[in-house]
Design a protein around this nucleic acid. Structure first.
Lengths: 343, 343
DNA sequence: CTGTTAGCGCTTTCAC
DNA sequence: GTGAAAGCGCTAACAG
């Protein structure tokens, strides 16, 4: 199906004719070149307005081999965390006059490959990608081979030398543990241990590090699964043990809210007997009851940083690789007890 | 900045030469034309593989005046509701081999205009738009004038004859009211009355209709504001009145969760003394405590429907305008009381 | 300062 | 079945 036009689409040539100049001159006006006389410029601009001219970037792209488009490949766009990240990317793009293709890999390596292929065909200038679980090195190698600039966000497929933006999950978890310890908690669980990608691993590493540092029990770990599930049987067992945990740090806010519900169903007063900390600071963290203490990973900032980093790379392909690690912030709310800080 | 290539980018011409055929033939192979001999086809395909050929859609677009891209313009991409919608759109696009530009208007009419302009420059085949608050008819008129197919999602800028997909908010609210009445509630509030766009108006209309139908008090309306706020002073006044409300239907889930928190802070047992119903069925609705009864508006389905409708329009520009109104579903959870249905 | 010319990589008649 | 040639709308080199 071709698009049909009632009016022939007005091209630069039409504008040029209307203004009585050549296409080249009109093109210069378009790009605000100082090389063109003021009077001519105005004439051309009027002609454009009169004819309702619309710049055809597609044609320009073909010539310049640059499209002012980027691709954003995410494992789950429906997840609020990633949609905030998307908003951050969009923000930067809007100021840079670039436009963003979105692709939802839904954690499927196949689909991700298909999408990267499409993005390449559309000649995107670069790609921001949070690799789907199970991605091996190959998709990134492909990008490299094609000299398609990319930056990885949040997850690293391998510790290669590529541009990379992420939150410092480990340190975030450490901050949380430290806070719990300062407020008198000793038996701290970690709920949602997984090994699926670097971001998940980093959390557990941070937990183990902090636990070692403070000489806390190292066995209070409940594994997690897809879709924010966790091993409820193990959770209950720990809870009913003779020396039960007094607090929990969870993989993310959603899981933390689930945990809070479970605790409340057990008749445990969250925020008093038991402290709960989540991760991400989604809107529902502050809207929960009691309000959830959380480690704010700043998805929007990550998105912004990734978009800026990609832009920098596009502007200078020779610049050295950069890793941007943003520090999460602990946001203390009622789920940790009201008068939190003792020290 | 031009992109630099170590290898010259391999074009169809290169492939053709490698295979010892003409560009035209290679092009036919590309598009799986039956007109080409099997042996030739295989030779060409091998050449493509050998050279690592990548189809350049940009060039094809220029020729065909069709890009296999669409634009998705949303007022707030960070909102989980819209990100679900986006996921629905992406799903359909993936099967149709089209790719989607995302644009976040952030409810700014100016930004929205800028983005539509960019999308036109990039020659998108069509647009799915949820108009920013305050949009007047002009942006859509522009699209029409340019013969750029579009479908409106969720909000209608005016009741014009354009393609349109939305949830039947009014009926959803009615279902909720009816359910409350059946479970013995009479003094039902509506929290979050606004007049900013058609989707907000429809909710209040539905409420008023249902309230009239069941001869309920019509004054229990609390107005809402931006960012899921509501008039807390009025809310408290109603709550402390001599004949207080016994239930609330809220503009959306986020607001409902805020309302639940406020009620709990007042010492009111949500789900027993007082029923709360939200709208949208976000993940946090089921994760709240007590779990939130909600009107599921099915954003993902709306996204899918919009993408399909746009595709249908692209395939046949002459088809008559279509309005798709999806029925929301009431999802009953603990915030309405355990043994909900009496009748 | 402005115009001429030659492509970018592809598709599409139209011959052969 | 296949090839030659024209052209989509733009930009870049170069001439004047």
């Amino acid at each position: 199906m071709k698009k049909s036009f009632s009016l022939a689409p007005v091209s630069l040539l039409a504008v040029a004719r209307e203004a009585g100049v050549s296409r080249a001159t009109a093109s210069l006006v378009l790009r605000e070149s100082p090389l063109v006389a003021t009077k001519t410029r105005e004439r051309v601009q009027e002609a454009m307005k009169r004819l309702g001219y619309i710049y055809n970037r597609g044609a320009a792209n073909l010539r310049q081999n640059r499209t002012h488009t980027i691709g954003l490949v995410l494992p789950n766009i429906a997840n609020p965390f990633f949609s905030k990240l998307t908003a951050g990317v969009d923000e930067i793009n809007d100021t840079n006059d670039v436009v963003c293709f979105i692709a939802n890999s839904t954690e499927s390596v196949d689909r991700q490959a298909r999408q990267l292929q499409r993005l390449r065909e559309h000649n995107v200038d670069g790609v921001i990608i949070c690799p789907a679980v199970g991605s091996c090195q190959t998709p990134l190698d492909d990008l490299k081979r094609l000299k398609l600039p990319f930056v990885q966000a949040l997850r690293q497929v391998s510790s290669d030398d590529s541009d990379y933006v992420a939150a410092d999950y480990a340190t975030g978890i450490e901050k949380a543990v430290t806070h719990l310890v300062r407020t008198g908690r000793r038996r701290i669980m970690f709920v949602g241990n997984m090994n699926v990608h670097s971001a998940a691993q980093a959390r557990c590493e941070g937990f183990m590090r902090a636990v070692a540092l403070h000489h806390l029990p190292q066995t209070l770990i409940v594994s997690g699964g897809a879709e924010n599930t966790y091993d409820e049987a193990v959770f209950d067992t720990l809870l009913n043990s003779s020396d039960p945990p007094d607090s929990a740090i969870c993989y993310n806010d959603i899981m933390a809210l689930n945990v809070m519900n479970r605790l409340q169903a057990h008749g445990i007063a969250v925020g008093k007997e038991f402290a709960v900390i989540g991760m991400d600071d989604l809107p529902q963290a502050s809207a929960s009851y009691p309000a959830l203490t959380t480690i704010a990973t700043g998805p929007r900032d990550i998105g912004r940083a990734a978009a800026n980093l990609l832009q920098a790379r596009l502007d200078n392909p020779e610049r050295s690789r950069e890793h941007i690690i943003l520090s999460p912030q602990l946001i203390i709310r009622a789920s940790c007890g009201e008068n939190a800080y003792l020290g």
